[in-house]
Amino acid sequence: MTAASESGSAGAGASPVTPSQTVGPFFGYALPYEAGPEVVPGWRPDAIRVRGRVLDGAGEPVPDALLEIWQADETGEIPRRPGGLARAGHDFSGFGRCGTDPDGGFWFTTVKPGPIGAAAPYIAVLVFARGLLKHVFTRLYFPEDAAAHAADPLLGDVPDERRATLIAEREGERRYRFDIHLQGERETVFLGF
């Protein structure tokens, strides 16, 4: 690697916004925390469990990714109180964080969010990883909501053949699977935020 050439990109520097940089490989001792994946405790009768893997363009696991989820509660209300870092009793903070394991795996226990407005119920999902110079945004929708999906403003904009990448698979009672493909034939739909 030699010194990179001077920048020539048009409009560069016009925005005051601080640029993104990769989370790198060494966040594991800093960002994940013990109750991070447990938005609600798994023993709660209304808890759902979501698990999945993060995979690269060759289908290989991404063992150094970090996922964050953010969502409304069962009634569609967005939490406005703290509690995402230190889980307190029955307070629902709506925020979860989980680093991937050597197999690219992650999990969360949470509740299924209620719908907001015209949108079908969904969980907002962020993925950070070594090799991602900027995080990616996606959404997790639920397979049992097919009727609501037909009217969902985002899903309507997604080409038919890619829509399934946003919909979790049912694995059992209150259990879902949601794999994230960063690249490749089954690349997950990512959002342009």
């Binding site: 991404v62 991602l132 690249q183 690349e187």
Partner: peptide
């Protein structure tokens, strides 16, 4: 192998 290649959807 990790960069998304498809267009992002807003």
């Amino acid at each position: 192998l990790r960069a998304p290649a498809q267009e992002l959807i807003m």
